[in-house]
Write a protein that binds this DNA or RNA. Structure first.
Lengths: 337, 337
DNA sequence: CTGTTAGCGCCTTCAA
DNA sequence: TTGAAGGCGCTAACAG
């Protein structure tokens, strides 16, 4: 890598500077102190020759290559993008780079992809929202050091950086309750998604905590289209008394609102709609979308912090769960009188 | 990399199988024909030991590591995400992985980042829309094999995969002209952006080709906020007779429409608005946004195709320029009578 | 402080 | 067809 023609090596530098390779290596790594004259000679030789050390050789000697991998189901998901960005920037500040491995939503490939990616790198960030728990647990043990992002994994020896989706849903329900809504619909995400399961748990908890509220679940999805297409089901629910909708995420909420507008359903007058994730677009929809904000970049940065500790041989640090922050905008309002 | 404890090596496998390392290497790489008995013995040993070859050692020997890097100014830009996804998938099908290097919009870091990334990888995909041409030309020569994405670079020895933005703008202007618009405003992107320059060229060409049309340029930006904030300037332009707006990209168009709606300006009745890039959200805005579609994933895939040829020692293949496709939706309409 | 010597794990001639 | 040996480029002992 890194060279077109026959690369110049540390031996060339040593020869030109009239010293041993070890000395060159020393000035390169500033480990021991070296005679200033030699340092200068070596520096000169390096400059003249335009030498750069081979990362491959270094990797072989050190047993690491200052690279981590992030495995994601879909690079086009704004949530993962934000995490990747945060991870990439944080890692870069420690001279680490990030390899991306998009599994294109094929759950059955995730395991192999993760193992392969891990083999090229020093550590792994795993986003595998749909992988069965047991399989993920085995995988995690196999590819350590690793941190799991955006889903719980009870009992596994791995740091987790995630979001308290259940709590977020409860907070959202509270918000709607405060506006007078008692009949709410939750448009669910992908059936196998762990974070959808967490949200559903939040739905249950909210129902249990407040008998006056009733929350129906409508099968949805995770993308704009899914929200668009679920609109009919939502209007049916509305006819049956539902006054507010919580969507799996903002994309679904935005797609839903688009269709509702077409159908002549006014948000929030006829129906309140809330999303989750607080993607940039949420502030720019009409009406502006009430959402639960999730610190995407921060999740990536925290994942790196934990990974760095593990790489350095440190302990498995405490997991973190971010509590989503309610962003009240214009798509939710008081229940119609 | 790839190991926690002392890794097992090809020597361990050889020992257990009772053959030489060379034989193991042979069955691993299925190069020469090997005695079936040996093959079996080696396979068994590999399975029992759970051996996987060291990528670092391989890299050192081969001088490559089956990894390419993509340098981008901002991972959160939907355009680059799409390209990255396409690139990543295409490369993966050839057992290559992609390293991402986000320069966080700091143009002065791009050069160093590119060189560093290139040093870790076999080749580079460069997205550097704001780097001065001359500097980019020098850089490109230095980091080959490389392909430049999404900007022209006349006279450089490098394949380019890009978009004919000028043509796209002209097609868009034609569309608006067909609807009767003669006074158009172009909300420009970042001043240093090469693709903005291309769009401006399209604006000039369109004006030159059709004297009946007049296109004003309004300074904008590249994000939702920029579009939102430029709305006042746009309404002023409208007061001065402008009947249609072309935004630098969809994000700007969407932000602009949001603000226009707030200001009571009806799109497309009072003003037509068109974007560029055709991001997923364009189909879901209210009104649905007319845009110029750009094949994001395909750009990434083509970038990989060219890179692969270069890596294999092939020639610099022809550059490609995609012609954006007009997606007529509801945000553009006939000029008011 | 410096040079010599062994590897890191793998592939690849070269003989046998 | 197989094994032995050298080397990819660098670093880390170990002497000197």
């Amino acid at each position: 890598m890194g060279e077109r023609t026959r690369a110049i090596t540390i031996a060339d530098v040593a020869a030109r500077a009239g010293v041993s390779q070890a000395s060159v290596s020393r000035v390169l790594n500033r480990k021991q102190s070296v005679d200033p004259a030699i340092v200068r000679a070596v520096q000169d030789a390096i400059d003249v020759l335009g030498y750069t050390p081979s990362v491959a050789a270094r990797s072989l000697v050190h047993g690491r290559n200052d690279t981590i991998a992030m495995v994601v189901p879909d690079l086009e998901n704004p949530l993962f993008q934000g995490i990747l960005k945060g991870l990439s920037l944080a890692a870069a500040s420690d001279h680490y780079r990030v390899l991306v491995a998009d599994t294109a939503e094929v759950v059955d490939d995730e395991e192999a992809t993760a193992i392969e990616a891990r083999h090229r790198c020093d550590a792994l960030v795993l986003c595998a929202p749909r992988m069965p728990e047991e399989r993920l647990r085995r995988l995690v043990a196999r590819v350590a050091p690793v941190v799991v992002v955006n889903r719980p994994l009870p009992g596994a020896e791995v740091p987790i950086v995630g979001v308290d989706y259940a709590r977020g849903i409860r907070d959202l329900v509270d918000h709607l309750r405060g506006l007078g809504h008692e009949r709410i619909a939750y448009v669910s995400g992908p059936a196998a998604s762990a974070s959808n399961a967490e949200r559903l748990r939040g739905v249950e908890e909210a129902s249990a905590a407040d008998p006056s509220v009733r929350i129906d679940v409508i099968a949805g999805g995770s993308r704009l289209d899914d929200g668009y297409m679920v609109a009919e089901a939502v209007t049916n629910a509305r006819a049956a008394g539902v006054t507010a909708v919580i969507a799996f995420n903002d994309l679904v909420a935005l797609g839903l609102m688009t269709r509702l507008t077409e159908l002549g359903v006014s948000v929030p007058r006829d129906l309140s709609v809330a999303g989750f994730d607080d993607v940039p677009m949420a502030r720019f929809s009409t009406p502006r979308l009430t959402s639960m904000s999730v610190p995407r970049g921060e999740i990536g940065a925290q994942a790196w912090a934990r990974l760095r500790t593990l790489i350095a041989g440190g302990p498995i640090e405490h997991s973190v769960l971010y509590r989503p922050r309610l962003e009240i905008r214009d798509s939710t309002g008081p229940v119609a009188a």
